[in-house]
Design a binder for these strands. Structure first.
Lengths: 231, 231
DNA sequence: TAATATGGTGTTAAAAATACAATAAGTCTT
DNA sequence: AAGACTTATTGTATTTTTAACACCATATTA
């Protein structure tokens, strides 16, 4: 094999850390591998990139096949390419994370075929390949990004309470001390892109909270006035 | 060709945005392409990744071949993989940036063979491939990173004046208003990891400035006490 | 020695971050 | 129906951080 040919004895894949938020916990969607290598192990959903497919498109495809969801927040994080990361050859992988509203998740043929499962981020361990490391990178990115861009809303239903929003931040950031309720509300409301719906929570055994939604137009105005999201 | 084979008709490269700081300006090192495609155009230095070479190693190799420098700051930024980004086939590229002390730069056989040149970042335009976009990503990353980690020092000689340091920040950040001299000094010195050398500038036609150096141990202490670099 | 150039230094006012606790509005139990 | 229970909602005082701002010092060169 010539040297030039040997450059083409390689492939690339995408792997996707799919985040969801449910029951107060940050979760990711894992699949159990049905074939070697790492048969039976839990892994991040991923696939080889098709020869004429863009990278972002490949990540979106993996996501859609597994969840049925399109047009979700998707962000490239880092590329992992250690020579020996894949037992069967030189395969580098481009890691993405995506944020979905877990309530929209439905079981698809793909997720049915390869058993898949939502797992609390804090419980994940011992994934196939270098996926533990990939998860760590994506989680670190999410922690940073969620403080500097209005990403949290991608994980919540369209209408949510401020307590739910705060819980989300608490579980993503996982800080030694929870955020202060009054200060959190003051700050997030002062940015002016959360609007009150004329609705309250239902079916809770206590005082129902007001529902809010994220107003993207008002967020754009906020940016145009030179402010930056910072939490 | 089988479908599986077609996955292996692809290659990956690294491209490196090599930043230097000289004469008050932020610069990058470009090479002029000697062969098609884009023959004669200016481009970021890069190369295909060898079959048994890690990605970071490939980026370091490209850098060393061009500059003779080892052990420089190197950071992966983003992977570019549009289907048609390379005219000759499917080549995705992993973009890195590196920070070098431009005074250490020497012409190497590689940089001699392919004409190379330092160019002010603000003057760069119309690079080969998607390199304009790659540069934009790396520059954005540098702007962010330089405020949250002590990277600036990688671009300066071991001993520098506070004015030089501020000039560096001014030219990297390129803000509408320059930083305030007194506030800048107060803040950077208060972090406690810059130490005065017992030396002053020489050969300047005005009052010579004190020289400082970055003390990495003190920086580690600073971190261990729970502080974070923030400028 | 005067002109010129950059180095070096402190204070004050404004804004932002933090710490902190009592009342309100529902449901559930008895 | 009263009381217990649970979470929602709201404001103030303190501390910390940021931002704005101007003059004298020290060297070289003409």
């Amino acid at each position: 094999m010539s040297e030039v040919e040997s450059f083409f004895k390689s492939a690339f894949s995408v792997d996707n850390v799919i985040f969801g938020f449910d029951g107060g916990d940050l979760k990711i969607l894992l699949i159990q591998r049905g074939a070697a290598p790492y048969k039976g192990k839990w892994a991040l959903p991923g696939d080889l990139v098709y020869p004429n497919e863009d990278l972002d498109a490949a990540a979106a495809r993996v996501l859609e096949q597994l969840t049925g969801l399109k047009e979700v927040y998707l962000e490239q994080v880092k590329t992992f390419g250690s020579v020996n990361r894949h037992p069967l050859g030189r395969v580098i992988t481009i890691a993405y994370f995506s944020l979905i509203k877990i309530s929209n998740y439905t079981v698809t043929p793909a997720s049915f075929a390869q058993s898949s499962q939502w797992v609390n981020v804090s419980d994940v361990e011992d994934l196939a390949f270098d996926h533990d490391e990939i998860l760590a990178s994506c989680l670190a990115r999410l922690k940073r990004k969620v403080r500097t861009a209005p990403l949290g809303f991608e994980l919540l239903p369209p209408k949510f309470t401020l307590s739910e929003l705060q819980q989300l931040y608490d579980s993503v950031l996982n800080l030694p001390k929870k955020l202060d309720k009054r200060n959190f509300r003051k700050k997030i409301l002062s940015m002016g892109f959360l609007v009150e719906c004329d609705e309250v929570q239902e079916g809770v055994a206590h005082r129902p909270a007001k529902l809010y939604s994220f107003d993207r137009e008002k967020y754009e105005e906020f940016l145009n006035e030179g402010y930056v999201f910072d939490l």
